[in-house]
Every structure is written in C-alpha cells, then in structure tokens.
Amino acid sequence: MNEKRNRKSKKTNQMKEIWRRFRKSKTAMLGLCLLIFVLCIAIFADVITPYENAISQSANRLDGPSAAHIFGTDELGRDLFARIVHGSRYSLLIGVSTSVLALVIGGLLGAIAAYYGGWVDSIIMRLTDVVMTVPPILLSLAVVAALGGSLRNLLIAITISCVPSMLRLVRSVVLGVVDEDYIEAARSYGASDMRIILKYVIPNALGPIIVTTTMNVANMILSAAGLSFLSLGVQPPAPEWGALLSDAKTYMFTAPHLLYIPGIFIVIAALSFNLAGDGLRDALDPKLKD
C-alpha cells in the first residue's frame, strides 16, 4: 500500500518536473498559448459566429476588412472571419487525426519490427524503404489522383505519407531502449517480458514519440493545406484554410486580404504545434537541450 502511494507520488513529481521545465521556456509557453487559442476557436466556433455566416452570400463582394466584416468578404460575399473560424475545425481535425493514425499504424509496425527483429524486421524495413523513395507530397498526390479529391481521401493520402517516418522513429527508439543497461538489469533479476515492456520500454520510448507526433500535426496541417490549395483535398464550399487560399489566388491582386489572413492562421496553427513540440522535447529530456 505504502509502496503504491510512493510510486504514485513519484509519477506526479515527474509530471510536475516536466511541467516546471516546460514553463521555464518562453517559446514553449508561447506555443502552448497559441495552441489553446486555436483550440478555443475550433471548439467554440458556433458560439463565436454561426456556421450560417460562413456560407451565406451577400452583395458585398471582395470587400476589405470593415466593422461589419472584420476580415472582409470573399468573391461570393461570404464573411471571411466566419469562414476562418469554422475552417479551423478542418485544419485541426485533419492535422490531429492523421498524426495519431500514422502514430498507431507506424508505431505498431515499428514496434513489431524492433521487437521481433530478424526477417520480420527486414521485410518491414525494406517495404518502408520502398515507400520512402516516393517523396511524401507525391505519394499523397498519387493516392488522391487514384481515389479522387475528398476529405476522407485526403486523410488517407496524408496519413500514408507520414507512416514510414513514424515507423522508422518508433523502431529506432524501441531498439535503443531495448539495448539499455536497465533493461538488462531488469531481465537479470527475472522480470517478465510483459513487465519489461510495460514498465521500462513504453515509458522510456514515449517521449520522442509524443514530441514527433506533436510536430507531425504541424506538417500534416501544411500538407493538407497544400493539397486543398491544388483543389485536390477538401472540396468547396467547405472553408478549409488551404481551400480558402485556393480561391484567393484568383483575386489576390484585387483583394489581397483573402490571401494574407488565411495564411497567417495556417502559420499560427502550425507554429503552435511546432513550438509546443520543441518545448516538450526539452522538458522531457533535458540532456538533449543544446
């Protein structure tokens, strides 16, 4: 009983320590604030402005920012502010879901490769090499070309392009942990495989994996925006941020606000995940900090 409580307090202490180190970094805290900001926009989109405003057309076309439309209006007279607020849901949903999906698929395969080794490892790694010969954007494009442009296919396309690097990371992290002395020590006093995996391998491998997944969200948001920009991703009239830019390109010389504002929001979203991930890495492993 006593031991259990001790272990629990040790864990909370560790979390406190990580949080203390995370808090010390100004950039990490900036990232966290931006992240909360973007999350709030996505969660409270309907409270901020009804979806109706994002799709209702008016006669005020291509207007610059004004009191009535603080971000101006687009070529169909739709309110850009409302479109950006509701578009945040797409960007976040796409970024987070594809990164997590890539983590699950890549993590599982990578862990299998590292754990079993031998021919299983060889086959998985050779296949990964093959997938990695196609640059990620091209791979996504090929998938979208075959399946057609839609939200679902976009998710499939960018998840696939992210799996190989995740797989490699998980494999190398697990391999690194398995070789550590403390695993050897645990084995020598007779700990079971299950106990070693649960108590030593997973906690020690988790850090870099969480960090990379956080940073992947940023990359996935950028890839999704790119594909939607080519009108091969989320289809109009959905206000995904990349799709907004795709429309803006036609009017960028007469209504540049359509180009500036969605781009700034994409940067804020991607930056928040990058900064938070960076801070998390330094907080989890102070040794790595330069």
């Binding site: 790119g226 920009f229 830019l245 990058n274």
Partner: peptide
C-alpha cells in the same frame, strides 16, 4: 519559415 506553407 518551417510553419509556413510553401505555396503561401
């Protein structure tokens, strides 16, 4: 720069 979409 690394948070910026290239096309933008």
């Amino acid at each position: 720069l690394s948070a910026m979409p290239g096309f933008w």
